[in-house]
Structure formats: structure tokens, C-alpha cells
């Protein structure tokens, strides 16, 4: 016999928009964002908290959305890659930097990197390369060898500092 599974009504703010849904307790936050809300920009790479592809921001701080249940996000604020660009015409400076520095290839890990880097550069606007490496070490990329991602973060930091 399977044990029973509880259901819960939750209210979550995602990229500034409030969503109310009833969810099964075990529904992962990553699956909630992707399948319940259709926000498929957050990718799922390992579901055991190592690859970082599913990184979103919970109240402004990057977390693994595969290691949280949707029910835990009740009353909290989530930001995903879809909430990064200011509008349809413009990209966020970090997105621009990844574009210019060829910081992505297949693009699968990219949203996780962007959400990690956005929080990192808020805390550390002028990082050293070593600090950049440490900051993104919780995100795996299998295409770029990180060389151009590091370049992109450096460039993004410059852009953000210039825009301040």
C-alpha cells in the first residue's frame, strides 16, 4: 500500500505575479514552476541538488528548486529566468554579457547560471576571477568549459557597474 499524500493550497509570487494553486505535498518546486505555471525556463538536470540547472531565487537568494517542495514556497517570492529581462525589447545586462561573450552553447544550464550570477553580482559588484569561479561552482556546464561564462560574468559586472 502506498502511504497517503497530503494536498495543500498555496499562494506564491513568481516574477511579481501571484499564483494560487492546490498542490500535492511532494510536488517539487521545479516541477511546480515548469508544469503548473508553464515557466519552463527553469531546467531540471539532476534532481539531486548538484547540477544547479534548476537554480531560482527564493526571496532574492539562489536556491535549488529541485530540493524544495512547492508547498514550502507558500507565501514566498520566487524569481526565475523569465523574470530577468526588463521587457520584450531589452535583455538584462547579465543576459547581454552572456550573449556577447558566447557564455552559452546548448543553453540548458544557462538559466541556472543567470539566476546565480544575478544574486552574486548584487552582493559583489566587482569580483575577482577566483570569486567568480567560486560563485558559479554550484552550476555545472558541460558545453563551455566555463571559460566564456567567467568572461561573461566579468563583462556583466562591468555593465552593471557602468549602469549604476
Amino acid at each position: 500500500m502506498l502511504p497517503e499524500s497530503s494536498r495543500h493550497r498555496i499562494r506564491v509570487t513568481v516574477n511579481g505575479q501571484v499564483y494560487e494553486r492546490e498542490v500535492e505535498a511532494r510536488l517539487l518546486l521545479s516541477d511546480f514552476l515548469r508544469y503548473e505555471l508553464g515557466l519552463t525556463g527553469t531546467h531540471v538536470g539532476c534532481e539531486h541538488g548538484v547540477c544547479g540547472a534548476c537554480t531560482v531565487q527564493l526571496d532574492g537568494q539562489p536556491v535549488r528548486s529541485c530540493l524544495m517542495f512547492a508547498v514550502q514556497a507558500d507565501g514566498r517570492e520566487i524569481r526565475t529566468v523569465e523574470g530577468l529581462a526588463p521587457d520584450e525589447e531589452r535583455l538584462h545586462p547579465i543576459q547581454e554579457a552572456f550573449w556577447e561573450a558566447h557564455g552559452l552553447q546548448c543553453g540548458f544550464c544557462t538559466p541556472g547560471f543567470l539566476m546565480t550570477v544575478e544574486a552574486f553580482l548584487r552582493e559583489n559588484p566587482d569580483p575577482t576571477d577566483e570569486e567568480i569561479r567560486e560563485a558559479i561552482s554550484g552550476n555545472l556546464c558541460r558545453c563551455t568549459g566555463y571559460v566564456n561564462i567567467i568572461k561573461a560574468v566579468r563583462l556583466a559586472a562591468e555593465k552593471l557597474r557602468a549602469g549604476r
Partner: peptide, 11 residues
């Protein structure tokens, strides 16, 4: 890799 069923409480 989806978690099994459980009952959830948030005291």
C-alpha cells in the same frame, strides 16, 4: 526521480 508520497506538516 520523484519523491514518494508523504504527509506534510509545517508547524
Amino acid at each position: 526521480m520523484k519523491p514518494p508520497r508523504f504527509r506534510y506538516f509545517a508547524p
